[in-house]
Design a protein around this nucleic acid. Sequence first.
DNA 1: CCCTTGCGTAACCGAATGGTTACGCGTATA
DNA 2: TATACGCGTAACCATTCGGTTACGCAAGGG
Lengths: 108, 108
Amino acid sequence: MEADVFKAIADPVRRDIIGLLAREKMTVKTVADHFSISRPAISRHLRVLRECGLVAIQQQGRERVCQIQPEELAPVFEWMEPYRKMWEAKLDSFEAYLEGLKKDRGEE
Amino acid sequence: MEADVFKAIADPVRRDIIGLLAREKMTVKTVADHFSISRPAISRHLRVLRECGLVAIQQQGRERVCQIQPEELAPVFEWMEPYRKMWEAKLDSFEAYLEGLKKDRGEE
DNA sequence: CCCTTGCGTAACCGAATGGTTACGCGTATA
DNA sequence: TATACGCGTAACCATTCGGTTACGCAAGGG
């Protein structure tokens, strides 16, 4: 129904599928062969991934080839970016603090 | 039960809570006041966030102050990083392609 | 032309999710 | 000390989720 990238990558199986497809495009069957769960289950995971654009599927004869569209992760990246800046600033200030300590020790 | 950052940020309410706490630390009550859902619901969202480390909570008298720990998003960032590289490479090659087109046109 | 194969989907089921109200407990306050 | 407040949690409920098996259909190969 909804195309939510955050929901899509919340599932470890779907992250694994993305990991697989990052190496090479492959058919639905081939994807399913990499997992122990049933093919319909994979089919539904792929549907979620397709609906949010993370995976594109094209028909080739009777097969369907899956391919990832990594740029669709951009929303996640953009959402995270400010927080990444926050924690980097935190680390920087911690380093500065350590640096300050060292300096203090050196000058005494 | 499980402390899964990916699951934690999959929920829009929890992302909103993180957004709130990014501006300033605040009590559970204050967080709840920003939403239309009940306080117990917020309490449980906060629990999820706390269990995966994204939010730290410290008791202060009868209040509990919430604070985000943005560095806990690192796993998500690290998981995403290769894909970000992929889509940037894609963009680069597209630019190179455009560049190539321009050059070809220019030389003919 | 049949039979196999790749695939989606429907129907079903148990577990997890996310909301609610009701309650209890500890801390501030009048 | 009585009362109000901040908070977590239990109990309950509806919905969603993720798995399964069973099926149908279209494309390829004997």
